[in-house]
Design a protein around this nucleic acid. Structure first.
Length: 489
RNA sequence: GCGGAAGUAGCUCACCUGGUAGAGCGACAGCUUCCCAAGCUGUAGGUAGCCGGUUCGAGUCCGGUCUUCCGCUCCA
């Protein structure tokens, strides 16, 4: 554990030191669980995004992308269940420091009463609780707990804090003249991007003439007012999701669920990260909208944690929106049902969702890439920090380094950069010894270092040095672009 | 939100029992060398997270606050 913690700390420091990630508004002491991506981090993040976007849209026959607004009509969140299901009042036991959902605590007590054959009393308490919950009467709820001497299972005491509401959605007022008391004008910052896809389901389906099965992909920010947000960029209050909702014919959800599990895992493996770093974790307790769900977990420095979720959401979301909006959310399927020989007809599609946290993916990529290498020889101690980033994700693809900063070498280097910068990001550096420049590039994850030397002036060849192997080969300048582009894939 | 630990230069840290801050690495400028870091010269950079208290005097003691990591909890 100590090692894992040190490794995690080292990665956090490295991210700061080399311009990948900074605490938000750091000069004002930062803002809890909010981070900024720096000059290197923003490139890496963008490359992850682009790679996901391309593989989920361009390379698919039947998936298109959208970019929905962060603000959505407030009713969206009533329909989705976020308003009702995620405003749970909580209470803490001061002795055991345990926190409970108030309804869970009271229900557990009523279960005990039932076991002891006090059925009537149990029913009565539940009825009281539901009334109080409906009124958001926290004082009354606390009184209910105290009157019944409901105690903490750990400490056995009734030493409770006041009941508090934890609303996981950020809200703000819409329009410049409304008062904050006016609940009708309260809008939320979306806590997930999925609803932006669901409310646009028919727009996309009709205007894009999409036929089921088809998908809608989206990358965007979401916001959750987490009770505890920690572990660097793993759990942030403002984060970015990359997700795809795949609309299918009801009854086919099992096969599509399995297919997307496999497809998504293959996507991860295609980045060269070994399969052992990943595992599936099936949800036992399903969310209100799902009939099957699993996570793809990644072995982060702090252990296996959720990276991506794959959920079979049934027709829950579209059905809810149909009910709340009073607009039919159905699709007419002209394909023939072999059982009847007739078209499948109208139905509300089922949905398989794949949803990955972009920031978590960033953390997965960088923590797997990070290595402190011992390069010592008997003669001399030596070490380097290297980021083994896949070329397609590396912020800088190629550094061009003149061996010397005179004799026309920098000019040749400049020409090479001008030839390549239109195709991929290059970096020029003439300061310090060549070895030191290589090591600096290693720390940024730059896969190729091209060195212009005196031989270059004679035959237009340069050396290209590979980050991971540290080996060099001599190639013609005219070959450079092809080599790098091939590696980007 | 509770508990634990911690916040001193970009990074890692030192300053032991209070007397107005140092090192290594890094950065920058120049020189030298030149295909794998730590050569030479010079320079910059910190009102010790912030606020308050005790004290003649606080980075050092006390309180508060912010931030980070760890445990519990939470995680649609």
């Amino acid at each position: 554990m100590a090692n894992e913690t040190n490794q995690f700390q080292a990665i956090i420091s490295h991210c700061k030191e080399y311009g990948f990630i900074f605490p938000s508004s750091e000069i004002y002491d930062g803002l809890q669980a909010v981070y900024d991506y720096g000059q290197m981090g923003s490139e890496l993040k963008k490359n992850i995004k682009d790679y996901w976007w391309k593989s989920m849209t361009q390379l698919q026959d039947n998936i298109v992308g959208i970019d929905a607004a962060i603000f959505m009509h407030p009713t969206t969140w009533k329909a989705s269940g976020h308003v009702d299901n995620f405003n749970d009042p909580m209470i803490d036991n001061k002795d055991s420091k345990k926190r409970y959902r108030v309804d869970h605590l009271i229900e557990a007590y009523s279960d005990e009463l039932r076991v002891a054959s006090h059925e009537n009393k149990a029913d009565e308490i539940i009825a009281d609780m539901e009334q109080l919950l409906a009124k958001d009467d926290f004082t009354g709820l606390k009184k209910l707990i105290e009157d019944n001497k409901i105690s903490c299972a750990i400490s056995g005491t009734c030493n409770w804090t006041d009941i508090r509401q934890f609303n996981l959605m950020f809200s703000t007022e819409f329009g410049s003249t409304v008062s904050s008391e006016d609940a009708d004008n309260k809008v939320y910052l979306r806590p997930e991007t999925a609803q932006g896809i669901f409310v646009n389901f028919l727009n996309v389906q009709k205007t894009g003439r999409m036929k089921i099965p088809f998908g809608i992909a989206q990358i965007g920010k979401a916001f959750r007012n987490e009770i505890v947000a920690r572990q660097f960029i793993f759990r942030m209050r403002e984060f970015e999701q990359m997700e795809m909702q795949f609309f299918i014919r009801p009854g086919t959800q099992k096969e599509w669920y399995e297919k997307w599990k496999e497809t998504r895992l293959n996507w991860h493996k295609s980045l060269g990260i070994p399969a052992e770093k990943y595992r599936f974790h099936d949800h036992v307790k399903l969310a209100h909208y799902a009939d099957a769900a699993c996570d793809i977990e990644f072995e982060f420095p702090m252990g296996f944690k959720e990276l991506e979720g794959i959920h079979s959401r049934t027709d829950f979301d579209l059905k809810q929106h149909q009910e709340y909006s009073k607009k039919k959310q159905q699709y007419f399927d002209n394909d023939l049902d072999p059982a009847t020989g007739k078209p499948y007809g109208n139905y509300i599609p089922y949905v398989i969702e794949t949803s990955i946290g972009l920031d978590r993916m960033f953390l997965a990529v960088i923590s797997h890439a990070y290595e402190e290498q011992d390069l010592s020889t008997p003669e001399k101690p030596d070490s380097r920090v290297v980021l083994h980033l896949p070329t397609k994700l590396a912020p800088i693809k190629m550094a061009v380094l003149p061996l010397n900063k005179k004799d026309g070498l920098p000019e040749i280097a400049g020409q090479i950069i001008n030839e390549c910068r239109g195709d991929f990001r290059c970096f020029y550096e003439e300061k310090d010894s060549i070895g030191r420049r290589y090591r600096r590039m290693d720390a940024l994850g730059t896969p190729f270092c091209v060195t212009v030397d005196y031989q270059t002036k004679d035959d237009n060849t340069v050396t290209i040095r590979h980050r991971d192997s540290m080996l060099q080969e001599r190639v013609a300048i005219s070959e450079l672009k092809r080599i790098v582009l091939e590696s980007i894939g």
